[in-house]
Design a protein around this nucleic acid. Structure first.
Lengths: 238, 238
DNA sequence: GCCAGTTATACCAATAGTGAACCAATACAA
DNA sequence: TTGTATTGGTTCACTATTGGTATAACTGGC
């Protein structure tokens, strides 16, 4: 796990201790929400048990217990020698919204939603939310490959959406992430996400986080808007 | 409060000392409100008794007493060797999104989505779309009762959303309309939707339609934004 | 002194988690 | 086809942690 946090961790207002993470159920919960958020898409293979154990800094037994819980919920299926695969379809809508949404259409929706979404986040985010967003940002900045970058990017933006504490907005952004995580983009990722592009994005992300931290709603909205418009331009220029 | 009082003379009217901070009942109360506030969510494991004792600077016996109170209230369940787990869910499983979205939250999402949505509509709407929107507008203007007004209003806005020809945007607005159509608003409709208010709304709708017809994206967005912000102000002023 | 509540300590039993080894199934490349 | 690497499946003894219990001492108000 990435541990370096440039910004100081926000101090909890209440001295209530937080429960220890790392147990099997906690890991299962994290994976479950990741699947629900579209971090892991339907049909995709999860990292191997040993890799997960390394990522979560726990033993393989614990990971296996967590995966057993997910398997009992029919969220994943496992095959020896092959891997653990997500078996989860978001809605019975046919066809899947992700199948019929183009990259340009997705960007247009994001341009519509996200600027005001971060405005709401600056107003409603608690210090705990900011802490979570900061952690997601650190993980995002320290991920070098396009594969992990897009995943961490979705986690980062979802944590901002959750910080609005607006259930409708959260559900909207889960759907956006579902579309973003669809396999139809995977071919495009490696082309668009050069190292330079990722650096540029990370610059925007950091700026956005700073604006959130100082509750600068207009500044945050501006950053997101120009961020997305840049992405849109790159898309049509491709 | 249903907690037991330490004294044995219940008839006395003389002021009774507050329970000392750090006592079992006080700690139980703090934990209870923390659970109710969602600091500790359902199914989550509380910190261990020894950790709580350390955090609250009291003995483990006191923590155990506090947890016994919570356990008697069925707020937590405990398993030796495993831990103390929250058994409390504020919401039934998978509640309808309309059930858990407040009017203010809905307006906030609409403010986020609709201004840019009408921008997209001005760009992508065909003449046939404009015709449909016009028909919906006529029906809306000629509906005098709050009941039919809200229904036609939903149709009008959905036809604008459909005019974006963006499947993701269409699905978003369908969900917004689903929330708007939920029975929880029905009580509010008759209060808010006076004849005067409906006239004012219709004025905005007509202006919006004109802007769409002449492909004035900025103008349309401005109209929608001020329309929604007015509604938001009315909401918080109520 | 009485007494209820708190403190402090020690130990027990239940459970979760660790780390290692090995097996069997699968995927992939030579 | 064959060999190799990787994956999940299984088992094992061991450790750490957790709630459960008991006991004696301390505290402050009555």
């Amino acid at each position: 796990m990435p541990m370096s946090r440039p910004t100081k961790s926000p101090v909890r207002a209440t001295p209530l201790p937080m429960p220890r993470a790392g147990t099997a159920v906690a890991i299962a919960t994290r994976l479950r929400t990741a699947i629900a958020d579209g971090i892991y898409v339907d049909g995709e293979r999860l990292p191997a048990e040993r890799a997960l154990a390394d990522a979560f800094s726990c033993s393989r037994t614990t990971i296996r217990e967590a995966l057993r819980l997910l398997c009992d919920s029919n969220l994943v299926s496992r095959r020896a020698g092959s891997g653990t695969f997500v078996t989860f379809s978001h809605d019975a809508e046919n066809p899947d919204i992700a199948e019929i949404t183009s990259p340009l259409e997705l960007i247009d929706v994001r341009i519509a939603v996200e600027p005001h979404m971060v405005r709401l986040a600056t107003v409603h985010a608690t210090m705990r939310d900011l802490g979570r967003i900061g952690i997601a940002l650190d993980a995002l900045e320290s991920s070098g490959e396009p594969e992990s970058f897009t995943r961490q990017d979705r986690i980062f933006h979802q944590s901002i959406a959750d910080a609005t504490h607006n259930p409708l907005m959260c559900s909207f952004y889960r759907r956006i992430n579902h579309v973003r995580g669809h396999r139809q983009w995977s071919a495009m990722k490696d082309k668009v996400l050069t190292g330079q592009a990722m650096d540029s994005y990370n610059h925007d992300h950091r700026q956005l986080f700073e604006a959130l931290a100082v509750r600068d709603a207009d500044g945050a909205a501006d950053i997101v808007l120009s961020h997305l418009q840049t992405a849109r331009l790159q898309l049509v220029a491709t």
